Amino acid sequence: NQASVVANQLIPINTALTLVMMRSEVVTPVGIPAEDIPRLVGMQVNRAVPLGTTLMPDMVKGYA
């Protein structure tokens, strides 16, 4: 099963992502693939992302 990117903490709206904010986990539904974590660093979320939430492509500005 493919691992997805999951929020390791509450990520406030418009926050630029850092490695410490994300972890990989096998979840359903599948979100952004864990191998894209390096690409996500520095990108901003367009909404608040609660701890444990799977990051979906539409949550990250410029990802989709």
Rank of each mutant, 00 (worst) to 15 (best):
A3M: 13
T53N: 09
P12V: 11
D58T: 10
T54P: 03
V26S: 14
V41Q: 14
N14A: 05
A48Y: 13
T54E: 02
N14I: 03
V6C: 02
V27E: 10
Q2C: 14
V60P: 01
I37C: 03
G42R: 05
V6Y: 11
V30H: 09
A64R: 06
P50Y: 08
A64T: 15
M43C: 08
V49S: 05
P57W: 03
V45C: 03
P12L: 05
G62Y: 09
Q2T: 15
M21R: 08
V49C: 04
T28K: 02
T28H: 04
A3P: 05
E25P: 01
N46R: 06
V41P: 06
L17V: 06
A48E: 15
T53W: 10
R39W: 02
P12K: 03
P57L: 04
T15I: 05
V6A: 05
P50H: 11
N14H: 06
L40Q: 01
G62Q: 14
M21E: 03
P38C: 15
T15N: 05
V49K: 01
E35F: 07
P57Y: 03
L55I: 12
G52V: 01
G62E: 12
V26D: 15
Q9C: 06
I11Y: 01
T18P: 02
Y63N: 11
M21T: 07
L55S: 00
L10V: 04
V60K: 01
M59Q: 05
Y63G: 12
V5A: 06
A64Y: 02
V49R: 03
R23P: 01
N14M: 03
L19E: 07
G42E: 03
K61L: 14
T28G: 06
N46C: 15
L17H: 00
G31T: 04
L10S: 03
T28S: 07
N46A: 10
M22E: 01
V6G: 02
L17C: 02
L40P: 00
L10I: 14
A64E: 13
T54M: 07
G62P: 04
A7R: 01
Q44N: 07
I37Y: 02
T28L: 03
V30D: 15
R39S: 03
L10H: 13
V27N: 11
L51S: 14
I11F: 02
V41Y: 06
A64V: 09
G31H: 02
M43R: 12
E25F: 02
A16N: 07
R47H: 08
R47M: 13
Y63M: 15
A48D: 15
A3N: 13
L51E: 13
V27H: 07
P57S: 11
L55A: 01
G42T: 10
A64I: 12
A16Q: 05
L51H: 09
P29N: 12
I11L: 11
I13N: 09
L51P: 11
T18I: 10
L10C: 11
I11P: 00
E35N: 09
M43L: 12
V5R: 00
R39E: 03
Q2H: 13
Q9W: 07
M56G: 08
R39N: 06
V49N: 01
Y63Q: 06
T54A: 13
P33S: 12
V27R: 06
M56S: 09
M56D: 09
M22P: 00
T53A: 10
I11H: 00
D58C: 15
R39L: 10
V60H: 01
A64D: 07
V60W: 01
A3H: 09
R23W: 13
V41N: 04
P50W: 15
G52I: 01
L19W: 04
D36L: 10
L51F: 11
V30S: 11
P12M: 11
D36N: 05
I32N: 01
R39V: 09
V45G: 02
E25Q: 05
G62L: 08
T54S: 09
G52H: 14
V30C: 05
V20I: 08
T18H: 05
A34P: 10
S4V: 12
A3R: 02
I37G: 11
Q2A: 14
M59P: 00
T18Q: 04
Q9M: 12
R23C: 09
Q2G: 15
A64W: 02
R47L: 09
L10T: 08
D58F: 07
V6R: 03
V49L: 12
V6N: 03
I37L: 12
T54C: 02
V26E: 15
G62H: 11
G31S: 03
V5N: 00
G52R: 07
S4T: 11
V6Q: 11
G42W: 04
E35T: 10
M59D: 07
N46E: 10
A3S: 11
V49H: 02
R39I: 07
T18M: 09
D58G: 09
M21K: 04
L40Y: 05
D58E: 09
V60R: 01
T53L: 07
Q44V: 07
P50R: 10
P33N: 13
M59T: 05
G52L: 08
S4M: 04
D58Y: 04
I37V: 11
K61I: 08
V27Y: 08
Q44M: 13
A7Q: 01
N8T: 13
P38A: 13
M56W: 13
P29R: 02
R39Q: 07
L17I: 09
E25K: 02
G52Q: 09
L51M: 15
L40T: 02
P38D: 10
V26T: 11
M43Y: 13
Q2L: 08
V20A: 08
L10P: 08
A16E: 04
Q44W: 10
G52S: 14
M59Y: 13
R47Q: 15
V41C: 03
I32L: 07
A16K: 07
T53K: 11
P50D: 12
N1P: 15
M43W: 07
Q44E: 09
R23I: 13
D36R: 04
Q9P: 01
R47V: 14
T53V: 08
I37Q: 14
M43Q: 15
G62K: 04
Q2R: 02
V26F: 05
M21I: 04
N14Q: 04
I32S: 02
Q9A: 04
E35A: 06
M21W: 03
L55D: 00
A16G: 10
M56P: 01
L19T: 12
P50K: 09
S4K: 02
A7Y: 00
D36E: 11
T53P: 00
V49I: 14
M22N: 00
V20H: 15
A16M: 12
I37N: 03
D36A: 03
V27M: 11
P12S: 04
P50G: 12
M22F: 12
N14G: 09
N14P: 03
K61V: 10
I13V: 07
G42P: 01
V41D: 04
G42S: 12
M59W: 12
P33V: 15
K61G: 04
M43A: 06
